[in-house]
Structure formats: structure tokens, C-alpha cells
Design a protein around this nucleic acid. Structure first.
Lengths: 141, 141
DNA sequence: GTGTTTGCAAAGTGTTTGCAATTTA
DNA sequence: TAAATTGCAAACACTTTGCAAACAC
């Protein structure tokens, strides 16, 4: 099984956790199943906990927070900073950017091939670029 | 009290408030003087309150929050969303972007002429672009 | 068994709010 | 004097933490 990416949609939750070296606990398995059921999901801890509750997944909010951060650390999720008061996580860890609908808290993907940023100057001495994040803030008219 | 100069910091701040149709209270005047003393300042409510305290400006934290939001609403400040846990305000309301040094909470301006974003798709039906924000996340090596 | 993970409730952070007192126009 | 503003403390929303019980290996 050469070159299988950690985040291929067809990978099942158990394999995903194994690849990430996270113990396949019931909570992590069930949250992973929810999260990676679709390829591009944007969730907050609260929205995921609610969804879990709706789907009969019994997980505490603290565990949802822990799990999201562990998944992020493992490269399974990407954190998206668009709102000062909530943290969003994106199941699409590939190169892409976002529209953010303010007042609705809604994220919409912009494929990485469509958008490009040029003219980024070299960062000041001693600093290295980690990522270039673009947020296109939009509002409903 | 004769001869009040037209370009004292007081007059500057007063004119700014007048233009923004905000009553020139002592608190707003003093905060405006701190804020607009330099052209490109990045502050959080807390950092501004601390600075005020250091400079002998007596203002409650609640008023600092209120004032920052009023100044933002008046177009005197721009809000910068880079960190899920703090809100930054920028005294430079012109076209520009930012480096953000994670773990230090430090913002560094990137002039608008240097950087450019192309290929931003039309937003979905019913949505209008408000702003295109670029954050270049960097870390110290 | 041993180390990891979970859940709860408590604590923490940054921010907003209710309201009486104060200030501005 | 009427309307806006302030400061305090309490309320808030989101997130993290401490720790005993439950679980994975």
C-alpha cells in the first residue's frame, strides 16, 4: 500500500487513527466517522458535539475539544482562524482558501488552484513562513 | 488658557473624534492620542488598557472595549482577525496585509502595493465581497 | 499491569452587558 | 435638562484543566 495519504476520504476511521498513531477509542472512532464522512467539512467544537448528540454519539464536550486538537496535531484537520470568538476546523487539509460569510459563521472553500497570492515579501530576519492564509469576507445582500 | 495651537495632540484627537461624530470625552481623547500617536499601531484591548495605565490615562477596560469598537465602526480602526483568542485593532486602515508571528502575538504590516491576490472567484449567489484578508503566518527559527 | 483517555465540574480568558452615576451638548 | 458615556461588577461564551474512573495495549 504505497503512498497512501493519511486523509484519503476512502480510508476508514480505524485506519486513519492508526496512521495518526492515536488509540482507536470509541470516542475518537465515532468522531472521525462523523468528520471524515464528507471530504470538506467545517466544524466547531460545539457544532461537532451537537452533531454527535444528534447522531447518538456519546462524547463529552471536553473530549471533542481534545480530539479536534489531537487530529489537528496529527495533520488530519486544519484550523481556520476567521472569527475572533470561535475556532473552526476543516477536514480539507489540502491547499485551499475560504470565503467567510460574516454573521452566519459560514465557511465556503475556494480551491487552491483558483486563487493565488503574489508579492509576499521575505519575512523579517529570523522568521520563516508557515502558511499564507486568505480569507475573503463576504456578506449576504 | 490662551493660544491653543491647532496641531496639539489634543486638537488632532478632537478633530478625529469630531469627524467621526463621537463626543470628545476625556477617555476617548486620551485613547485616541495614544492610538494615533504612531501611524501603524497594532493593539488589543488589553495592551491598550495597559499602555493607558502606564501613561497615567484613567480608563476602565470596558470603556477601552467600547471605544475600540466605536473607532472601528467609525472607520478609524481596522479589526484584524489572526488569533482565535484575541482581537487586534490596527490604526492603519489603508490597504495592506500582515505577517503574524504565532506564539508571540506580533503583527507586522505588509504594504498593500507589495502583495496581491488574484483569482478570487465570484462569491456564491447573493454574497458580496467585503474584504480580502491575507495573513502570512510566520515563526521564529 | 501500565500508561492513555475520558468525563465531569471547576477554573480560566477575553469580551459584553446592566445599570446608577457622571458628563456632554 | 435630555441624551450619551463611563465604570463597576456580574454575566457570558468558548476553551482548558485537574483528577478519578474507565479503557487500550
Amino acid at each position: 500500500m504505497a503512498n497512501m495519504a493519511y486523509d484519503t476520504p476512502e480510508m476508514d476511521a480505524g485506519a486513519r487513527l492508526k496512521a495518526a498513531r492515536l488509540r482507536p477509542t470509541r470516542q475518537r472512532l465515532e468522531l472521525a466517522r462523523l468528520l471524515f464522512r464528507e471530504h470538506d467539512r467545517h466544524v466547531t467544537a460545539e457544532s461537532l458535539a451537537e452533531e454527535g448528540a444528534r447522531m447518538g454519539v456519546k462524547v463529552s464536550l471536553a473530549t471533542v475539544y481534545n480530539t479536534l486538537h489531537q487530529f489537528k496535531a496529527a495533520g488530519l484537520l486544519r484550523q481556520v482562524v476567521v472569527d475572533a470568538s470561535r475556532t473552526y476546523f476543516d477536514t480539507n487539509v489540502g491547499d485551499h482558501q475560504h470565503f467567510f460569510v460574516e454573521n452566519e459563521g459560514l465557511l465556503i472553500d475556494i480551491p487552491g488552484e483558483e486563487i493565488s497570492v503574489s508579492g509576499v515579501p521575505n519575512p523579517p530576519q529570523g522568521l520563516t513562513i508557515d502558511s499564507v492564509d486568505v480569507v475573503v469576507r463576504v456578506k449576504r445582500n
